[in-house]
Write a protein that binds this DNA or RNA. Structure first.
Length: 107
DNA sequence: GTGCTGACACAGG
DNA sequence: ACCTGTGCCAGCA
């Protein structure tokens, strides 16, 4: 192939893959950062978190949570409001998601 | 290449 | 249940 210079990859390949997965999470269900990383087979939880921090606004970012069902600091209010609106099963007085019921099986 | 910063996970205490 | 340390890894200066 002739080396055609590409303008600038808006997103790295990894970032694109992360957003792609998040985009498939059905309403009312969630995934953890680790789930996404495991599904992709690369990056790890922190890699996913890094992508979400920069590009999360483009997708349903509120459907990606920590491994214990809590939401990242500073996002609790906005996330829980949306999660409630979707009917996502909550626990602990509505302060966290009930992962045993809300975790997406990937299908 | 080097070093630092996080929307993380997990084991201890 | 909460706090801390360690391992982890993408993105950026």
């Amino acid at each position: 192939m002739v080396p055609v210079p590409r303008p600038e990859p808006e997103l790295t390949r990894f970032a694109s893959r992360v957003l792609d997965v998040v985009d498939r999470i059905p309403p009312g269900q969630v995934l953890t950062y680790g789930d996404v990383a495991e599904y992709l087979g690369e990056g790890g939880p922190r890699g996913v978190g890094a992508v979400m921090a920069r590009h999360g606004a483009a997708v349903a970012w509120w459907r990606v949570l920590r491994a214990d069902g809590t939401v990242a600091p500073g996002l609790e209010d906005r996330a829980l409001e949306r999660l409630r609106a979707e009917g996502t099963p909550l626990a602990r007085g509505g302060t966290r998601v009930d992962l045993s019921r809300a975790r997406w099986d990937g299908r």
